[in-house]
Write a protein that binds this DNA or RNA. Structure first.
Lengths: 238, 238
DNA sequence: TTCGCTATTTTGTCTATACATTAAATGAGG
DNA sequence: CCTCATTTAATGTATAGACAAAATAGCGAA
């Protein structure tokens, strides 16, 4: 287990910070001191400390020094997996049933997505199945001007989300996550009672400044969950 | 806007990767080529590519080269605000009502949180109010061995979450987000009908390897939503 | 063919040095 | 005591070179 030196230095301080031995606000030794401590060049120490800084564990200020960061973190990394891939990973058969496919323009679309009146849109509605059981309903608008190839795409079987993921890399996205009761239409599509609790994810994506798609997905409670994680290292169990 | 050279190189490739100009699997030029392209030393190129690698945008293999990584799951940054602070931000009066406070050990606790049988726990149950209206119910376990000071804490008015945030900085957390119908007990506490759809956030936090707390929060649908964002720059409207 | 050794390419690490940048600390003048 | 310019200590960036490590690619032998 012969780790590189810069990695050993990084871990030394990561350990001390995570254990609380170095409390938030505490000052770390200067690079000059550390290059003496570890008997190495400054670049090596710098690499270790820079890594801690990009990981958010320390703050570095010129002239002042390096300080253990205060964990003011209110953000966690949330996984947004591809629905089809996730179902397949659980060993279940995935299917998408397209219920509605319609071309319209921004002026005709509902209010959820504020796009220009003239923008040509493709409206899609459908249901995701796992092993033949419906578990998610989705209602989507796609900006055809940004993704003209979508006109030729066929969504019988595979979902529009998967198609978009493979054909249109997005650079920016917003998501709003709420709970909602299934409406009459949604309940019938999902084979549940109206009012049944569902997880609702509304997501808008852009490529650069160009809007790509707006989608509202409704997941039957219990059949789906989002996970989020914060912290160094791998996800843990339990 | 005079960025450092290594940052400019990094952004050049980040842009090309996010825009799709460099597709997943595509090979980037070697460091030798890049140091000629940008007329700089190899360390400068290396710093840029290493940053892309730690960000997960590229994979680097010796002898083989540097390749655009295949994005398996897309991670978004999810906001986890302090409940009390968020309510206050909306100009509403915040209150927390503690309903249950009990000391027990890991052996007696329910299955949701796998802690050692001998671990001393504090069990807390209560309701969050905004302007006198209940909007969230929470059920929490705290590892007293990790946070002995909590025995003396008083949660009439302010929530355990806020107290923990101020007294025990966590370094790692997992969250699971689902929808659920309110149980009879929960529905009565939240003044809604049983089965009413709620957003359910189950979160576990650690400091280093030491478990700190497990909490399950139930939010009345419509009264609360989580937001997530991915991409450069500030959050957008619409 | 297939196995195994070797050569070579590419990234990984480290050094020693130089100068730039920033903001805290200092000190002079009012 | 306050203000503003100067000093200076710390990080930030970059260079040119060296050797290490790993894995592909190619070659030779069984």
């Amino acid at each position: 287990m012969n780790l590189p030196l810069h990695e050993r230095i990084r871990q030394d301080f990561e350990t001390r910070i995570l254990s609380g031995a170095l409390a938030p606000g505490a000052r770390l030794p200067t690079e000059q001191v550390l290059m003496a401590d570890y008997d190495c060049a400054r670049m090596t120490v710098n690499k270790a400390l820079t890594a801690l800084a990009t990981a958010g564990l320390v703050d570095r200020r010129k002239k002042a020094g390096t300080f253990v960061a205060r964990p003011r973190v209110h953000a966690m990394a949330m996984d947004i997996p591809d629905i089809g891939a996730q179902v397949a990973e659980r060993g279940q058969a995935y299917r998408f049933d397209l219920g509605l496919r319609r071309e319209l323009t921004g002026g005709q679309a509902r209010l959820e997505w504020k796009v220009d009146r003239a923008v040509p849109l493709l409206e899609l509605e459908g249901v995701h199945f796992a092993d033949g059981t419906p578990f998610a309903w989705e209602h989507r608008f796609v900006n055809v001007a940004a993704v003209p190839e979508i006109s030729a795409a066929d969504f019988t079987g595979s979902s529009p989300g998967t198609w978009l993921l493979e054909h249109v890399p997005w650079t920016e996205a917003d998501a709003h996550i709420t709970a909602a009761g299934a409406s009459a239409v949604e309940a019938r599509a999902l084979a549940v009672e109206p009012g049944e609790p569902c997880l609702c994810v509304a997501r808008k994506t852009w490529r650069g400044s160009e809007p790509i798609t707006y989608v509202r997905q409704l997941f039957v409670a219990g059949a789906y969950e989002l996970t989020a994680h914060f912290g160094p290292g791998a996800r843990r169990e339990g």
